[in-house]
Design a protein around this nucleic acid. Structure first.
Length: 592
RNA sequence: GCACCCGUAGCUCAAUUGGAUAGAGCGCCUGACUACGAAUCAGGAGGUUGGGGGUUCAAGUCCCUCCGGGUGUACCA
């Protein structure tokens, strides 16, 4: 028997096979293998319980039979895995230290982990729609989560073998352009003369324009007309639009560099302007879309909240009554384009939780439409998140009630981190402290956003985020820095093979070695639901196991054999921590 | 009105998607630097998982019902 990269999966599959040849088992049996409470073992199979219940059998006897069959098979070498029966019919699996040692030998470098992880997505064509910010607006705190969560998920998909396209689906074709152009023309603004803070000015012009529309509602018709002119290719409006988009892109690029956001293509809503007609035609042709109140809409009567006879009807509006396209039209055109141009097998959308209705309608519409036309429907998923709250549990704002600018947030994170580094490590020269503050500050900000379950709101607190205690980026970075420090002192390259090492012996060594293996499960779990906090929790536990080991067992000892086996644990921990941090978009440090 | 989400220790969050005695951090209390970096570690106190009912061998997790909070409700994106 060879050690398995992913024991959970391997045990599951072995038990399934064995069960088919074991009396009392049959169709519908799933072993149900999952990580177990360490008191009982490394993994447990609890599928026998449910199966026995459904078939009115004695679960304990059935589990006993399966366990004996497993032991008799050649799938479980007793020198590597110990099996036992417990409680009402749990089967527990404990990996021996020999197994763990062989696993450590078999999987040492990032490439080794990745070669195993690649099976999770095996070259699947995935388009991830992120960070998809709006143009003509300054980025604020609301843009933090799409950038942070998006890049973490993108890196994870890439690492796990997806053939990935990061598509920045910018909002460059919306109704807001009507208002903005109206205001620009009214004030006769020359966009080329705005200088460095051009986006700030645009942002203000839009706000002023909207305020003006409230005061003078007749201006709305002018704005609407400017939008229609733009959408019909009017030369002067198109020229203005080009300038606005360019100003926005320059500003976003500056943030992307700071945030570590990578984008493969930028195909905004405007790219689909000549592709929406086909959507109207096809959806009408197959009888899915129909006129309602002058607009073209799709009803989903089978879903209660979208049904047409509701008190407040809520159709999927794909063309406004003035004939203009909208969010829905371009999103539909985008799905089709991603299928035809990229052969997308999977599309991942990232937006906040408030857009769930839109995506439910989009997915339902696509499903019916693609089925009628015989198109291959990609798997579509909506990765959404909650709001960042202040201490008062209301959306996080400045004291005066303004939204916090993303740039200001980043600058404050750096400044606060710099102050702490200076306090903890005053001897480092300033340039290095600045570099450390960059990684620690931005990393802490990102980690705070990633470490709690994304579907929930979370409370933002500088104090907790940068207190550097508990489940935070600095705690993980500190663990890496301490490992690096040991390798510097010993004079060994942490990336090089370590000679003379042997299997883990002490309690702390074994606990750490086991925890290192947990990376596989953590990746799988994170990927299954695209929830980065699973990976964060794992990395925190790994760093914790390392810290315990560090305090309990000294690495730099005279006994070369002991030193070698501990150095090997340090090297493996370092590799996994650095790989994990990299997946989260956080830059590990040599010193901090 | 209708739909969806949430309620877990004083505070901030977990709980491998129905598994065994609900776990961390902060804060509080007790210890560990002549030891590889104390931004650390070891330990302690702290819970009727909003209330009630139900399904199940097994419920924080599923169903019903109340209470409390949030979000969405076509021509913004």
């Amino acid at each position: 028997m060879k050690v398995w990269f992913n024991p959970s999966k391997a045990i599951e599959s072995a038990l399934s096979t064995i069960a088919t040849e074991t009396e009392g088992f049959g169709l519908g049996f799933e072993p149900g293998v999952r990580p177990a409470d360490p008191r009982f073992g490394d993994y447990q199979a609890n599928g026998v319980l449910g199966f026995a219940k459904r078939n009115k059998a004695n679960p304990r006897q059935l589990a006993q039979r399966l366990l004996e069959a497993a032991q008799a098979s050649d799938s479980f070498d007793p020198a590597l895995v110990e099996l036992s029966l417990a409680g009402p019919g749990f089967i527990n699996f404990k990996l021996t230290s020999a197994f763990i040692w062989q696993w450590q030998l078999a999987f040492s470098k990032v490439e080794d982990f990745q070669s195993g992880a690649k099976e999770l997505k095996h070259g699947r064509k995935v388009v991830i729609d992120y960070p998809s910010a709006n143009t003509a607006k300054q980025a604020h705190i609301g843009h933090l989560r799409p950038m942070v969560i998006g890049q973490a998920i993108a890196r994870l998909l890439d690492f796990c073998g997806a053939d990935l396209i990061r598509d920045n689906h910018i909002g460059d074709w919306g109704t807001n352009f009507g208002t903005l152009i109206m205001k620009i023309k009214r004030d006769q603004i020359d966009l080329s003369q705005l200088g460095e803070d051009a986006l700030v000015t645009l942002d203000q012009l839009y706000k002023d324009g909207s305020a003006l529309e409230v005061e003078q509602p007749e201006l709305r018709d002018i704005s609407r007309n400017e939008l229609v002119l733009l959408q019909n290719g009017d030369a002067s409006n198109t020229a203005l639009w080009d300038q606005i988009v360019e100003i926005s892109k320059v500003a976003f690029e500056k943030l992307f560099v700071q945030m570590g956001v990578e984008v493969d293509i930028t195909l905004g809503e405007s790219f689909y302007r000549d592709k929406v007609q086909r959507i109207y035609d096809e959806l009408s042709e197959i009888g899915l879309a129909e006129e309602s109140d002058g607009a073209l809409v799709v009803w989903h009567d089978e879903v209660k909240k979208f049904a047409r006879n509701n008190e407040r009807p809520f159709p999927f509006n794909i063309r406004k009554k003035d004939g203009a396209s909208n969010y829905a039209s371009t999103d539909l055109a985008t799905v089709l384009y991603r299928l035809e141009a990229f052969q997308a097998e999977e599309i991942v959308y990232l937006t906040d939780a408030r857009q769930q209705d839109h995506f439910q309608q989009l997915f339902l519409t696509t499903e019916k439409w693609f089925k009628a036309k015989g198109y291959a429907k990609p798997q579509m998923s909506h990765v959404y998140w909650g709001t960042i709250l202040g201490a008062d549990k209301k959306p996080f704002k400045t004291k005066s009630g303004e939204s916090i600018k993303l740039q200001e947030l980043l600058d404050e994170a750096r400044k606060r981190a710099f102050d702490v580094v200076t306090e903890k490590n005053p001897d480092l020269d300033k340039a290095e402290r600045v570099e450390i503050a960059e990684s620690v500050g931005i990393g802490a900000l990102k980690y705070a956003d990633l470490s709690s379950n994304r579907t929930q709101d979370y409370v933002f607190s500088w104090e907790r985020l940068l207190s550097f205690e508990g489940n935070t980026a600095p705690y993980l970075l500190y663990a890496v820095a301490r490992i690096n420090s040991i390798f510097r002192k010993v004079g060994v390259d942490p990336e090089a093979p370590i000679e003379g090492a042997s299997q883990a012996e002490t309690e702390a060594e074994l606990a750490l070695a086991r925890k290192i293996m947990g990376f596989v499960t953590a990746l799988e779990l994170t990927l299954s639901d695209l929830r980065p906090h699973f990976l964060c929790t794992y990395l925190y536990e790994l760093a914790g196991a390392y810290s315990s080991f560090y305090n309990a067992d000294k690495v730099m000892v005279d006994d070369d054999a002991v030193k070698a086996r501990r150095l090997l644990l340090c090297a493996r921990t370092r590799t996994v921590l650095m790989t994990g941090l990299d997946l989260l978009g956080i830059k590990p440090l040599e010193r901090m």
